[in-house]
Design a binder for these strands. Sequence first.
DNA 1: AGGCTCATGTAACCGGTTACATGATTAT
DNA 2: ATAATCATGTAACCGGTTACATGAGCCT
Lengths: 189, 189
Amino acid sequence: MSLSFGILGFLNYKPMSGYDIAKAFESSLQFFWHAQNSHIYLELKKLEKKGYICGETVIQSDRPNKKIFSITETGKKGFMNWLAEGAGEEATQFKSSFLMKVFFGGNMTPAQSTDMLRKFKTDCEAYIKKMEDTPKSIDKYGYNKESYQTMYWQFTVDFGYSFIKNCIEWAERCIGKLENINEQYPKEN
Amino acid sequence: MSLSFGILGFLNYKPMSGYDIAKAFESSLQFFWHAQNSHIYLELKKLEKKGYICGETVIQSDRPNKKIFSITETGKKGFMNWLAEGAGEEATQFKSSFLMKVFFGGNMTPAQSTDMLRKFKTDCEAYIKKMEDTPKSIDKYGYNKESYQTMYWQFTVDFGYSFIKNCIEWAERCIGKLENINEQYPKEN
DNA sequence: AGGCTCATGTAACCGGTTACATGATTAT
DNA sequence: ATAATCATGTAACCGGTTACATGAGCCT
């Protein structure tokens, strides 16, 4: 469902091929909506069937042929309606199997759970680095760069940063508490 | 996948019926893993088939009969292995269709996107209230309350709080920036 | 020769959601 | 009466993942 709106959103900027869309996802939406390229092609077919987009094959001599998709008026309406729906309840929902593991952490040894949290922290730090490398490639796509469009992209980047920083601080607090306990009851470890 | 480990985790504390498990989810894991009761019953069947749990029907005179499930040794092993895997890459992944809407916010009027962010903020505040009411019911279940088990529950609660607070602060920042722009270009609104 | 980028798909599977279906007992 | 709690399921669907499959052209 959401993937199709992501595709529509990109095609609303300009016509693109499935390959282009996959690239666009990778350098932006990826951080909060991962898209498999196989899934993108499937969704493009569905959207075409629905009349939301239409595709046109472009013959290329130097590269493999490609199919360029454009958004239709119906597609635009569908996309705008989705936007107009605004924030749903799912927005506050944070689904995480990792937190489920933390929840059941009492079944691990303190050493095990501390390791898990440390690994999580390291992963978060790696994630920040990955994010830092990405804005440059967003610029590369630069649809309507002049407009206030980019401000919204910045909002999502800002969210990502503060989310990850928050994760790191949380992990540090947890590790700290676990270390305290190990000092108090060294034999339990 | 994760649901089944959530079920195993609860049954690892003590034998329970499907109904009990559903209640347990509602008052704890719910905040980062929502479980439909229909899904729980399906998963219980699968786990039984797999030999991870075994069920026994209990005939009740005052209430409808129920089926109490216990975790087997195989089930315990499976659960412990899952825990031992530690934090995966998915832990840092934050999937959100709401952020996708924000990303495409440039297609809305500033008034529309401001409303969306304000709604999000209100939803977050409501979520905090919901969380504040829940710890009491976690106590009600109180498996191994004496042990350091509860510390891990507290970790997840802590995560939830700081996550939502972070969301609220982010939304305020965004709203502030949008209001600035409206002041600069009042006719665009 | 080997690896990268460009380019597009199919098939099987699976976790999870939605809707539907039933029915007893207890408390107000 | 009627609402709430206790109690368990089935069937259809669907969004998304994983694995598989192919192949041209470019750069080193």
